[in-house]
Amino acid sequence: MSTPSPSPCIEVSDLTIAYGSFVLMHDVAFTINRGDVFIIMGGSGCGKSTLLRVLMGLKSPAAGKVRYGDVDFWGGAEEQRQATMRRAGVLFQGGALWSSMTLAENVGLPLQQYTRLSPEEIREQASLKLALAGLAGFEEYYPSEISGGMRKRAGLARALALDPEILFLDEPSAGLDPVSARLLDDLILELRDTLDKTFVVVTHDLASLFAIGNNSVFLDAATRTMGARGNPTELLHNPDTNPTVLRFLTRGGSDEGKEGGV
């Protein structure tokens, strides 16, 4: 599963995130390699989405470093952050499509802003990205006219608009039926293998995180720091894994076994 020579893509060190004086998490450190499907997991309210917001440049950390390759993400100027973020695509929890625009315009807007493509070429691009996400023919629909699952797919199509190297997905399978969730997982793996993207996925969907994740970090709400990091399947089979993490990975089963058949 892992790439032969891992090259770091995002490096996080000594990260502390706080809201005012309330420390949400401290001493978080991990490395995301190129071609990883990196899972940020943990119970509800442990700060998964907030950590993602820090990685995406929407919330500044209280302490610590985030490096994108050679770039010190939070140490530099805002312009630099914006330039870095242009290499990344984001799928928000609810899709966060711009509701006043059609799907094609949603996907086309970033292209319109950052490329010199003609309107026809932008349309072609948008149609292709929508088709990749399984939404061929829905170009002229507004976000309010399609289902939640389709909004997620459209959000993914928009995240792919600028052909980013890194994709951030915030709970991609939340609110989807099992079959749609599975299809989305397959799509993620497909994109990783064919277009060589790196994925950072926030999820607590066990089926999905075992299926797609090759690296992960577990955030523990009780200790407010990392509980574990590494390949989720290996964590499940490793007897030394922190019990909280094991409980999470086995849906609360008191002894490891049910899921992995250990």
Partner: peptide, 12 residues
């Protein structure tokens, strides 16, 4: 709906 955040993440 996080639409404003979505703009920011595209550097808009």
């Amino acid at each position: 709906n996080e639409e404003v955040d979505a703009l920011s993440t595209f550097g808009l």
